[in-house]
């Protein structure tokens, strides 16, 4: 599967941009946290697209963001 580029993303309408990013991010996140992959992906998709593209290219930044999101999700669930 060829990498998702900024120009590919720019060519798509906003709704599809998030879907494209989600479809790429989800399998990567699922490897880290299979149980909450859907929730974590949904949280990260609210981030700016340029940062999401960067995360797709840089596993370290993706990993850091995912761990951050897991902590936020756990705090949110503890509050409920």
């Amino acid at each position: 599967q060829e990498p998702l580029t900024a120009s590919m993303l720019a060519a798509a309408p906003l709704k599809e941009q998030k879907q494209l990013l989600g479809e790429r991010l989800y399998p990567l996140i699922q490897m880290l946290h299979p149980v909450v992959a859907g929730k974590i992906t949904g949280m990260l998709l609210e981030i700016d697209n340029s940062e999401l593209l960067h995360m797709l290219e840089s596993p370290e930044s993706l990993h850091a963001k995912v761990e951050e999101a897991v902590a936020v999700l756990q705090a949110h669930q503890a509050k409920e």
Binding site: K15, G42, E46, E80
Partner: peptide, 26 residues
Amino acid sequence: SNGTNVNWPPEFCPGVPWKGLQNIDP
């Protein structure tokens, strides 16, 4: 409200249109 929105986060499922778009539509 105390902000505990049970619909948050808008979960992503592959192949299913993501529901979180209404939160970010400009």
